[in-house]
Amino acid sequence: MKQLRHFFDLVARTLFVLSSTPFRMKEFSRQLYFVANGSLPIVLFCVGFAAIVTILEASFHMKLVIQNDSMVPGFAALLILRELGPVVTALLLTSRVGAGFTAEVGLMKTTEQIDALRMLGIDPVQYLVVPRLIATIVGTFLLALLASMTCLLGAMFVTDIHLGYSPAMFLSSMRVFVDFQDLLLAGLKGAVFGAVIPLVSCHFGFLCEEGAEGVGKATTQSVVVSSVSIIVLDFILSYVFSYV
């Protein structure tokens, strides 16, 4: 309960400071580079494989049910855009970026650097959380778009090679199910997940206990809570976009 109050305190304080903080381009670029450019290879590699698995599984299931897999590209594209692209990206960022943030902030806490910042009259939320929050929101949005498109192109390639449907057929099947807004929805989901990662990570960083064990525990908790939050938020967003 105390942790929950601390978390909402942090969220409120970040939102409050966000409006009054001058934009620090250099710090923002540094964090964005860490979040987006640094994670790009691993994200693209993983979603590429996710695309292959999606096509193979969808084809297998469709053949099992209706003995025809001509609609696989459409279904797979929809699944990639609405779920795989943003969720896989966010979960990968949680383990890579979120863990990094928690460890960094946690270590600063245990080595009393945060107290030093306070003594210098610098607000740690303004100095540490805000640039990370903006960078992760923007970074996850960009990565979700890139991942979704890479996943789609990968799916198109696998469909051509494995199922024998040409890219033109893939596109015409995709157009039956997919709208342009679906990619924007993927980006939006990415941005929301991107907001969760630094807030949860910094929250556990600020609550980090002394010693290596404390940092390890905080990092583990941060990754677990971020991942669970992303999955729950994904359900809420999917429900809202599909039925409301």
Binding site: R30, L32, Y33, N37, L40, L145, L146, M149, L171, L183
Partner: peptide, 27 residues
């Protein structure tokens, strides 16, 4: 520079958005 690398990534994402718009026939 870091800013340039980050900018290239953003431009790449915007370009893919345009490609998708063309694939969907919006553009």
């Amino acid at each position: 520079k870091t800013e340039t690398k980050v900018g290239i990534l953003a431009v790449g994402a915007a370009a893919l958005l345009l490609v998708f718009a063309m694939m969907m026939g919006v553009l």
